[in-house]
Every structure is written in C-alpha cells, then in structure tokens.
C-alpha cells in the first residue's frame, strides 16, 4: 500500500499516540507545566469536567509566559488557547495532516463523540508512524557510494 493510501485509510487512533497531559481549567500554570513535564510532552489538554475547553502548548508558554511578568500561580485558562481546532480518534491521519497545514498547528486535540478529551495528535506522531510503516523509505538508509565521511571512523 502506498503512503498516500495509508494516510487516507489509517485512523488517528492507530497512530503511535502518547498518553496526553490533562489539567482542569482552574489548575495553576505551575501544575500544568509539571503535568506536561511528567509525561515528556509539549502540551496539555485543558478540561472542565472531562470536556475539552482549551489547549496549552509550549508555544503559549513562549509567547505568553516566558519573558513576561509570569504568574506561575495563575490559572492555566489565562494562557491557554480556548476552544482549539479538534478531531476525533476515528478521523484519518490525512485529515490530521490537512488540519495541521491549514491551521499551521503542530498539535491537535482529540475528542470522543461526547466532546470529552480523548488524546492529542502531533506532527511528530505522524512522522514516526510514516517512518515506522515505510521503513524502506525512511529507516533503512541504503549505502551511498559517493558518501564522504566528515571524520575518519573511530577518530
């Protein structure tokens, strides 16, 4: 199957998604940053009673917190992107790529049929999926007879 067909047919739930960081909208910025770090991610889903109400990413941190008179005790809802563009776990990988391109997003929150926060898909998840499923194109680098090494091997 070609990469293009795969992208159209594979659902987001089949991508190598990582468990999301989730916080309540009243959670402090400090708690949110800790939640993100503990999961080794770059964003957190902001919820209210399980429903997705916002997204807080490292870009929000850069633009609204770093270098500003930061209030790490302030609630995350002050810094989040409210009502972000979202997709469902059953949308296609191509839909995720298309939305990322159209909106210039790197991170898209995922919700279930009831609007409950269900996960997050990032551009990195898509790249990882493609590299793993098309190893011939990505992981198995063929020899390059004209390659010149920058340094002598072992030096």
């Amino acid at each position: 199957m070609s990469i293009a067909t795969t992208l159209r047919e594979v659902k987001i739930r089949h991508l190598p998604l990582r468990p999301p960081a989730m916080v309540e909208r009243r959670a402090s910025l400090k708690e949110t940053v800790e939640a993100i770090k503990s999961k080794h991610l770059g964003c957190a889903l902001v919820c209210e009673g399980g429903k997705l109400v916002g997204l807080f990413t490292e870009r929000d941190l850069l633009n609204k917190v770093i270098g500003e008179p930061a209030g790490y005790a302030d609630p995350v809802e002050k810094f989040m992107t409210p009502d972000p563009a979202k997709l469902s776990l059953d949308d296609s990988a191509e839909a995720a790529m298309r939305l990322m391109q159209e909106g210039d997003y790197r991170t898209i929150p995922l919700v279930d049929a009831q609007g409950n926060a269900a996960g997050v898909v990032t551009v990195r998840d898509l790249i990882t999926y493609l590299a793993e499923h098309f190893p011939k194109e990505a992981l198995n680098l063929p020899p390059d007879p004209h390659q010149e090494m920058d340094r002598a091997e072992g030096a």
Binding site: I3, A4, T5, L7, R8, M97, Q101, R124, I127
Partner: peptide, 17 residues
Amino acid sequence: SAKAIANFILKYSALDF
C-alpha cells in the same frame, strides 16, 4: 521542520493514488 516535511508529504499524497 517536521511540519514542512508533513506538508510536503500531504502535497504529493494528494496527487498519488
């Protein structure tokens, strides 16, 4: 960027069947 690569793939996947 990963996004530029993803956009490249998307561009060619639209032409690819």
